[in-house]
Write a protein that binds this DNA or RNA. Structure first.
Lengths: 314, 314
DNA sequence: TTTCAACATGCAGTTTATTCATATTCGAAG
DNA sequence: CTTCGAATATGAATAAACTGCATGTTGAAA
């Protein structure tokens, strides 16, 4: 049924270009004998002659001409596909579907993507903006290729690139009572309304790294989607919020609100880029991590810290 | 270098359609093991994974998706090409480049081609109208596929289909002296001007079958391209011409000129369709011969004779 | 007729594809 | 945590194919 192979098409094309089996054999790096066998076998398979050998150059029959037309259609397609595969295999290209667990990350992610696109034009980029699914399983499954997260989970097959550390600070209104204190303690928040992104509380540093360990439960938790909205609520005294120091930088410059560290030493989460282990070494992937780090240090100079250890699980 | 084969593309397509190697194996009529080996080998060849097996359905990597795109581009092309080849091999289709040695043949050839086209739409038809080359070598070489000729030449690899016999008659003006005779003898033309198509005289029946055997040379030979032009010249008394009886039929009906036989028995050439021996049995070829004969007997009823022996050389 | 180049062919060695039998892996269910 | 089943991987054996070599055949030109 299926009988024609790419090898046959290549031979026929070479035969047309050269005019004789002998020369065509050189082009495809085979012997004249091989091509003779090959063509004869194909002719018996399809049941008719492909070309007349007694002429110089050889003359193609209708069937031969039809196959040459096929060759002209398909061989270039196959060739470019193979070139694409080389780039794909060499890691110069690939798919980079990413998701971020941290809302405020858009601030540095979008400029980072911009510069990355210039260097890696062939990479198919996309951001999954929905927060409605668990990113890490999706990463392992292959729906995603990169997840920006502050909560590395020890899962085989997942590799974490540390990006930077920042301080998660408590934002309060300028006239808030806590402004009087050097730093905030868990107990200070018992009477407070916490304003946060609308995500599970075990993905919020304020709870996982500060309140929960101390067994403290705040009076109330309110949600807001956008960072500016949260900041507005905080500034107007409707509650307090825990946000990355870099996300608050601009508002502090404008003297819009005040911030305090969580505890004496502060809470310092680290952001990681999580990728599948088999893609960790792909240049287009590590290339993105490099661009991301660089962009952050340029934009958030002095606010985030770069001295990071590669993540190791026990 | 060249690594991807059609078989790989077929497997990948089946894999996408089915979702698992087991099911894909059924579709391509191989075992699961075979596909496993096949895919693994391709993956090592191109240097990267093609799909993730741990999911259901399987998930394709960028490289796999790229090859699927290639499959979607090429496999349909290959399939239709193979269908075309089947028709070509079955003789239901083919190329039919023809040439005619006899000018007046257009009269019945064009209607014949018309009806043929309806029955054999896929056949690539063309008429080489130039008389500037020798048709029979071109036929043997493959430049042509069918030559209408009255002079069969014993050449190996060429097959002749007899079409019909007709009488080559001498056309003269109505007031010409020869009208008085029952038939014309070679000597009658010594003083005459012969009007003929502008071709070699050994391809003109008047010379080869009538004058040359008798050693008679006419006073003058004039050329004209078109049959109507020749008829006009003859009618106005500028000379005489030898033409097929069917080509003169219309003019005789209108009493435009007179005709006489060449010799007592007349000259009766036979028209043949010459084809390459390997195509003689192809249905699309013998189909054309049938249509041609049929058309002639319908259009030239009673003027040409159909009782023909298949041509045999000694 | 000879000669040369191109093509065909028989055979042998090698590679490749496929299958069978079996092992491993993964996920789900107990 | 173990078991079970489905899917995939693997190893070895076999069959098929592709290819190259040596040689035969053919056609066209000298």
């Amino acid at each position: 049924m299926s009988q024609v192979e790419l090898r046959h098409l290549r031979t026929l094309a070479a035969l047309r270009d050269s005019g004789s089996l002998v020369e065509a054999a050189e082009r495809v790096h085979l012997t004249q004998s091989a091509l003779s066998h090959q063509m004869k076998e194909l002719e018996t398979r399809i049941g008719c002659a492909l070309f007349v050998r007694k002429t110089r150059p050889v003359r193609f029959t209708s069937a031969g001409a039809r196959l040459l037309a096929l060759a002209d259609q398909t061989l270039p397609l196959v060739h470019t596909a193979e070139l694409d595969l080389q780039r794909l295999a060499g890691g110069e290209s690939g798919r980079l579907y990413m998701a971020i667990e941290c809302h405020s990350c858009f601030e540095w992610l979008l400029p980072a993507i911009d510069t990355y696109r210039n260097e890696w034009a062939d990479v198919e980029l996309d951001i999954a903006s929905g927060f409605h699914f668990a990113p890490l399983p999706a990463l392992a499954r292959g729906d995603l290729d990169l997840v920006i997260t502050a909560d590395p989970v020890d899962e085989p097959g997942i590799h974490y690139f540390p990006l930077f550390s920042y301080e998660a600070k408590l934002a309060v209104a300028k006239d808030h009572a806590l402004v009087a204190k050097q730093w905030v303690e868990p107990a200070d928040l018992v009477q407070e309304t916490i304003i946060s992104y609308p995500v599970d509380r075990d993905r919020l540093d304020l709870f996982t790294s500060f309140l929960d360990p101390a067994g403290v439960e705040p009076a109330r938790v309110r949600h807001a989607e956008l960072t500016t909205m949260i900041v507005q609520l905080v500034a107007s005294g409707r509650g307090v919020a825990c946000l990355p120091n870099w996300a608050l930088y601009e508002y502090l410059q404008n003297d819009y609100l005040s911030v305090r560290s969580l505890g004496e030493d502060g809470v310092w989460p680290t952001l990681y880029g999580a990728v599948r282990a088999d893609q960790a070494d792909a240049p287009f992937m590590s290339g993105f991590v490099d661009v991301a780090k660089e962009t952050c240090f340029k934009n958030l100079k002095g606010i985030v810290t770069a001295e990071l250890e590669p993540l190791k699980f026990r």
